[in-house]
Amino acid sequence: VITKDQQAFMNVILDAYNRHQIPPDVAKKLLQEQYSAEENFLLLTEMATSQVQVLVEFTKHIPGFLSLDHEDQIALLKGSAVEASFLRSAQVFSSKMPNGHTEVLEERIRKSGISEEFMTPMFNFYKTIGELHMVEEEQALLTAITIMTPDRPYVKDQQAVERLQEPMLDVLRKLCALHHPHEPQYFARLLGRLTELRTLNHYHAEMLTSWRMN
């Protein structure tokens, strides 16, 4: 059973998650079909920057985040920005978009100059996230949990972060049981995606280097 307090806690996170999305004018540019390689690079960079800004705004609303040490706040965001962005992009990809949008978006990313060896695990991740059919509360909580990961580099007070992450894991576990009563492994599958995200994060620096070179 999800208690009233947990429901309120979850609503705060969900509301912040829904309110902080990439601005429509930035997102719209992605669907304009004519672009040179250089314009594509700049646009994807603009998207990435916007995504980080939106992520920070969302994170400020995660209960307790602003009470953490300021440098720890930065360490958490730095350590999770790539993973949280992959998670958000995966959700965009698995959401219902108007006809043809998914293809335009996919083609833009495939033509971005990122090497194929990084592209495959990224699109595989998008696919496995899509197959989970998460409800929006699960998406919001999973993103918040990714950000509030205590063992990121340079986090000094890991226990304080753990104290904020635990109640979110608890609500997510209950939500999974409620929404997916016939899939007892669902919560474990979600956590498994977080491990996959860590691998993507690990390759991200190499991916950026290859992208810049291309």
């Binding site: 980080v52 705004e57 300021h70 965001l77």
Partner: peptide, 21 residues
């Protein structure tokens, strides 16, 4: 331009500012 800013710069700026105001 944003493309010249590092991740940490973007995070610090966003943490300091308040886009909602």
């Amino acid at each position: 331009p944003a493309s010249n800013l590092g991740l940490e710069d973007i995070i610090r700026k966003a943490l300091m500012g308040n886009l909602e105001e």
